[in-house]
Amino acid sequence: MTEHQARKLASLTTPVLLIALLTAFVLLIGAFGDRSLGRMAAETLIRVTLVVGFWIFAGNSGVISFGHAAFACVGAYVSAWATLKPAMKSLLLPGLPDWVAQAEWHVLPAAVVAGVVAALVALLAGAAILRLSGIAASIASFAFLAMVNTIWSNWTPVTGGTSSVVGLARYVTPWVGLGWAAFAILVAAIYGASASGLALRATREDEVAASASGIDRYRHRLAAFTVSAFFCGVGGALMGHFIGVINPDGFYLSLTFLMLAMLVVGGIGSLSGAVVGVLVVSIAVEGLVRLEKGVTLGATQFALPAGSQEILIGLAMILVLIFRPAGLLAGRDLILPAAWVAGRAKTPK
C-alpha cells in the first residue's frame, strides 16, 4: 500500500470514530442518566445533525452563513404540515392547500421531505446569495434569515404566525437522534473527500489560486449549500418533534448563534471540530444548569445564582477563543494513525 492510500484510508476512520464517540455518549447516558439527561442526549444529537449540516457548507467554503437556522425553520414546518392530524391542521392552519391538509404521513418520510424542501429553498436562495463573496454573502444570508423569519411570523393561515404550532408527535429519542447524526457525519465525510469538497476547500484556502486552476467556486458552493441545508432541514424537523411545539422564534437568532458558537468552539476547520464542539457546549450547559438547580457537596447545599449559566457559558466561549483561536481541535480530525491503518490493511494478505 502506498503512503497516499494509507492516508486516504486513515481519513476514512474519522466518521467511524465520531459515530463511535456519539454511540458511547448515548450508551453512557442510557446506562447512568435519568430521563432529563436522556432528553439532553437527544437534544445534543439533534444539534450534531444541525451543526454537521452547517459545517458541510461553512467548514468547507469558509463562508459564514447566518441563514441556516432558516432551513431548520422550513424543515420543522414541512414536517409539521406532513404529520399533524388533519383535524388539528384545519383548526390551527386553515390556509394549507387541501392535499397538504389531508396528509398524515409517517414521521420518517416527513423528515426526509423536510430536508429535501429545505435543500430546494437553499438551491433557490443560494443561487442568488452565493454569487456574492465573503462578508457580503454572509450579510445576504443574514437578510435571508430575517426574511424567512418575517414571512413565517406573519403568514398566519399557513404557518400559524407567531403562535406556536402544537401537536407534533414527540418521537425523537436519543437513538433516532443518533441515527440522523451518524448519517449526517457520513455524508459530510463523503462530501469532504469528494472532488467537489476538495475544490471548495481549495477556494477557502486561496480563492484566486483556485479560480486560476479552473475551479468554479459558485457551483461547488451551491452544491455544498444545498447538501448542508438538507441536514439543517432534517435537524429542524427533529427539533420540532423533540419539543412537540414549533414557533418561528425558535429558529432565529439564538439558534443561529448557538450553531455558530458550537462550530467555533470545536474548530470550524474540521468535521471532528463540529461534533466535539456540540458535545462540549451541550455538556457544559447541562452541567451549569444542574449547578444552578443546586448540588449537595458534603453537608452544604451549593447553587449558582439564577441566570449565571448564560454568563458563564459566554465567558467560557471568549476564553476558548482567546486561548484556542482555531477551536478546541484546531482544524485537526480524529483519525487513527496512517501507519496503523496501513498495518491493519496489510495483515490479511
Binding site: 448563534f257 470550524i268 441566570g307 454568563i311
Partner: peptide, 30 residues
C-alpha cells in the same frame, strides 16, 4: 476581549463579540 484576539480570524472575532453580548445581556437581566 478583543485585544487578546487581535490576530484571530474575523469569524472568531464575530463569535467572541456575540458571546460578549450574551454576557452583557444576562448581567443586565440579573
Amino acid at each position: 476581549v478583543f485585544r487578546p484576539l487581535r490576530n484571530a480570524s474575523p469569524v472568531a472575532l464575530m463569535v467572541a463579540s456575540f458571546a460578549l453580548g450574551v454576557v452583557i445581556q444576562n448581567v443586565l437581566l440579573v
